[in-house]
Write a protein that binds this DNA or RNA. Sequence first.
DNA 1: ACCTGAACACCGTTCAAGT
DNA 2: ACCTGAACACCGTTCAAGT
Lengths: 236, 236
Amino acid sequence: MAKDTVRATTPARTTRRERKGLQQEAAVKAAFELAQRDGAAGLTMRRLGEELKVDATTLYRLFRDKDELLLAVYDHATAVELEEIGEVPDSEHWQDTLRRIADRIWATAVRSPAIAALTFARTTGGPAERRMVELILETFARSGLSREATVRYYRAFADATLGLAGQVAVLATLDSEIQAKDAASWTRIYAHLPDGEYPTARAHITELTSIDRRTIYDLVVEAVLAAAERESAESA
Amino acid sequence: MAKDTVRATTPARTTRRERKGLQQEAAVKAAFELAQRDGAAGLTMRRLGEELKVDATTLYRLFRDKDELLLAVYDHATAVELEEIGEVPDSEHWQDTLRRIADRIWATAVRSPAIAALTFARTTGGPAERRMVELILETFARSGLSREATVRYYRAFADATLGLAGQVAVLATLDSEIQAKDAASWTRIYAHLPDGEYPTARAHITELTSIDRRTIYDLVVEAVLAAAERESAESA
DNA sequence: ACCTGAACACCGTTCAAGT
DNA sequence: ACCTGAACACCGTTCAAGT
């Protein structure tokens, strides 16, 4: 519990900047846990202040506004991802590396939907994001793609994974009542409509109700990897 | 200007249900325009009430809550998309139909970012959404895929396009200051770092700064279509 | 039958005042 | 030098009261 680190209880031999850094770290950690526990709606400046036993307005000396705090929290989540991905063995095929990365991005969205939902479309500008960019670029570059194509596929991979993971995250932050409604939408809508109205949807009702989001995520990831592979084979 | 339709100024020969339907329609249209004009943050119940010259709380007889209103607005946007897509000629290749659909989904996100950002991860349950589902399913089914694969690719296509379009939409709803920061992030971050730190990112800096989001969108769409084509060729 | 408006329980953020 | 707390300008939503 480093809760009180936001207060000036640090020893005298730290510079102002170091102290501020530590306070930010403590606030980010607390915000992360708060969002985890109480969801996106629970992460407010007042509640975070309470958690840190500090007046909410004090947080504005640590972060310019709530947005900046959110981005810092998201970068923290990315740092965790990177740690889980760990070292990339030299022998690992570039596609397998990307599959592992995609898997961790998904895991973050499932574990921390509140944070992911709030920031999936954003650039954090933080150190973890930079390392992640470097890793994905490096990996596509290994495939033998041109510089231009490497960047194109890096972006396709990053945006598609974050976009799809963002959807699950947003959904997970909604009321469980709405989630249930969303999950049952196929049967709810099509099971009780006149026969002629949506013939194709009705003909596929079994398949529509049984497919899961992770399958779709993997399908899109594989489609992007396959396209990259084909393009690198062509240029070789 | 059908502004006052929310008030009970309709002739006596309409049932209560018809009247409510008209009022809902007028509210949805006004909400759509309000979001267009003032952005996501501008679409509040009070402001919508003002626009319709009705007390904000009156809207709660038309929609259970703000979420329900939002979904109705999103369904309205989907209806516009469908109109723009128009009839699908029998001669059109299934991939070209899907390209046109993807293009209109993108257009909605660019034109109505506030609405798209608020609802891209959601199911509206409305009539336009049902017709859209029917159209996309129908089109994939034309490719000769199995029932199971048709549904798989329908979802991959729909989720990927909405996810990516959702990202541009969310970005477009942010302060223009933040948008500029986001757009310039590559040069801002990597141009001023020590040489050894992110070698791959630095080596790709020109390409990273020049790529645009629409190129990435099209790349992902094409990757999904190519995967569908290969799978349908295999099963044939 | 329909609509209003006061009220509740919140938000993010600013800034003068305290220690 | 640092932190507080009152205050501002908002939210979505409920419900008793009006016409």
